[in-house]
């Protein structure tokens, strides 16, 4: 039964015409960046590992951003299209419905990550970076992706409009991305320092550097990822809480 829902989510969000346009736009972005690495003089002087790190940052940022936009639509969209009631009336439990949607959402992210692989392959040629990129993308960074997917789905469940849930997810993503816009000096103290220390996105970038450049061990990477794991737990807790709140009032 749940397979039917996952199948529907895949058709609706992963292989729909809208999704294909999104994939197209994403590849255009990836292509622009990859081409700049071989054509813009400043970027072409970068070490190969730096090139791949920069590309990884963009892949992560874009894929998560698009995923949360799709996730914010999943429940709120069903509510707006008035299809939610029929789903809730099916023999599937609310938790199963949410799980089906989460799987669909993660598959959407997976497709975007797959689209980035040919670029990584080209940019990491002659080095062992491609394998590292695979490990980082699908193992180290996966908790971050699940966390953001769960968060956007949670907002989509609580808020009845797609606009509100998309906006809230987007703002939260931007808040976690604040440290990226700040200088090193600013990140060393005050509020920026706190955000930098706890931001899952910022910590993932630190992990990226420690893994790609500093080649630090598993233990250090785990310490780096601690805020990401906490973020994942909190996001899933929010999703479970939101899941119990799914309801339709009389006459709604």
């Amino acid at each position: 039964m749940i397979a039917a829902l996952i199948g529907k989510e895949i058709k609706e969000n992963v292989f729909s015409k809208k999704s294909l346009w999104i994939y197209f736009a994403v590849t255009l972005l990836f292509s622009g960046l990859a081409l700049s690495f071989v054509s813009v003089k400043e970027l072409s002087l970068l070490a190969q590992v730096e090139v791949n790190m920069t590309f990884m940052k963009v892949v992560l940022g874009i894929s998560i951003l698009v995923t949360i936009i799709i996730g914010s639509n999943m429940y709120a969209g069903e509510r707006e299209r008035e299809t939610l009631e029929s789903l809730l009336l099916s023999p599937l439990s609310k938790a199963q419905i949410t799980f089906g949607k989460l799987v669909g959402l993660l598959l959407f992210w997976f497709i975007i990550s797959l689209l980035s692989l040919p670029y990584f392959f080209a940019l990491s040629m002659g080095t062992d970076i491609f394998v590292k990129a695979l490990v980082f993308l699908y193992l180290i960074c996966f908790p971050l992706v699940i966390g953001f997917a769960a968060l956007s789905l949670g907002f989509s469940t609580i808020l009845s409009s797609t606009k509100s849930s998309t906006l809230l997810s987007f703002i939260l993503f931007l808040v976690t991305a604040i440290p990226m816009f700040l200088s090193t000096a600013m990140k060393k103290s005050g509020f920026a320092h706190i955000v930098d220390t706890v931001s899952p996105l910022s910590r993932s970038m630190l992990t990226l550097k420690d893994y790609f450049v500093n080649r630090l061990g598993f233990a250090v990477l785990m310490v780096d990822l601690l805020p990401v794991i906490i973020f994942l737990i909190l996001s899933i807790a929010l999703l479970l809480f939101a899941n119990n709140k799914i309801t339709l009032k009389g006459g709604e």
Binding site: K17, L20, W21, Y23, F24, T27, L28, F30, S31, G32, A34, L35, F37, V38, S39, S44, L45, L46, A47, Q48, V51, L115, P118, Y119, F121, A122, L123, M125, G126, T127
Partner: peptide
């Protein structure tokens, strides 16, 4: 300079990927 990046290969990937998706869209 030590980059082993092959600019031609990067250019091929960068041009081919959006074209493949565009063709897929057209097909759908």
């Amino acid at each position: 300079g030590n980059t082993k990046i092959n600019p031609i290969f990067v250019q091929i990937v960068s041009i081919a990927m959006p074209i493949i998706l565009l063709l897929l869209l057209f097909f759908v």
